[in-house]
């Protein structure tokens, strides 16, 4: 039996892709930095330099000169993390829907060496998530589309909270620049035979996060990107 690794929060890179975010981002980043994590913000070509609003925070900022999409932003941060020899990275949304307090639960399977990649799920809790019917239906369909395309059946789809160990970090290479990256992560997980698991996480739906989040129309665009991805591998 292998013993759980010991790890300090400062050895954990938390990646936060941002694009034209409001003050909620500052709160999120302040909490993450306050918890002692190494925070990597990827400013994906925001109209106003993110550096101007969060320059005072102890975070690293990577900036795309033009907007490429969340998938591209994550991969840029992954490359940075690889250069820095990061042991574990967390991906975390800036819109305030994720809880900093969920991070330890996300890390646990990696530290116990039970998984290479841990995916947050809003549906693993007792009871149901506070979520609208149409959103729930879209996510259910997305789950099955992901399953059909990747062979990985999860309880949630497109949850932005994930943890990756070094192995996953070195294997996963995202080429989908926009939102289809969430499914591409599953393709890569399967392709490289990475160990994965899901842990329950809390999602708080605020007016802001709903407005920043994906609409049903966006999911059609994602599906289109996925079909092209499969066609032009």
């Amino acid at each position: 039996m292998s013993h759980p690794q010991q790890i300090h929060n400062s050895d954990i890179l938390v990646i936060v892709p941002v694009y034209n975010e409001s003050s909620v981002m500052v709160q999120t980043l302040t909490q993450l930095a306050g918890a002692g994590y190494q925070v990597i913000v990827v400013d994906d070509g925001s109209d106003v330099l993110v550096k101007k609003t969060i320059g005072h925070l102890p975070v690293t900022i990577l900036r795309h000169r033009v907007n490429l999409g969340q998938g591209a932003a994550l991969q840029t941060a992954f490359n940075y993390a690889k250069k820095k020899n990061a042991q574990v990275v967390i991906t975390f949304d800036a819109d305030g829907q994720h809880q900093v307090s969920d991070i330890p639960a996300l890390l646990a399977p990696i530290l116990q060496q039970k998984a290479d990649i841990v995916l947050g799920s809003r549906f693993l809790h007792e009871g149901s998530a506070p979520i609208g019917f149409s959103k729930k239906m879209v996510l259910q369909i997305a789950r099955f589309v992901n399953f059909l395309l990747s062979g990985v059946l999860l309880s949630d789809a497109h949850n932005g909270l994930r943890a990756l160990n070094r192995q996953a970090l070195s294997k996963i290479e995202l080429t989908e620049n926009r939102m289809a990256h969430a499914s591409e992560i599953l393709f890569e997980t399967k392709r490289h035979q990475l160990q994965y698991c899901e842990v329950p996480v809390h999602i708080s739906y605020t007016e802001y996060s709903k407005q920043k989040g994906q609409s049903a129309w966006d999911s059609i665009k994602i599906l289109f990107d996925l079909v092209l991805h499969k066609l032009f591998r």
Partner: peptide
């Protein structure tokens, strides 16, 4: 297919620029 290839090259340039600046 060509657009996707161009997009990937474009992404690589922007990404390298971001990493170099950091």
């Amino acid at each position: 297919a060509r657009i996707r290839r161009l997009e990937q090259q474009f992404t690589a340039i922007i990404r390298n620029d971001a990493l170099k600046n950091a």
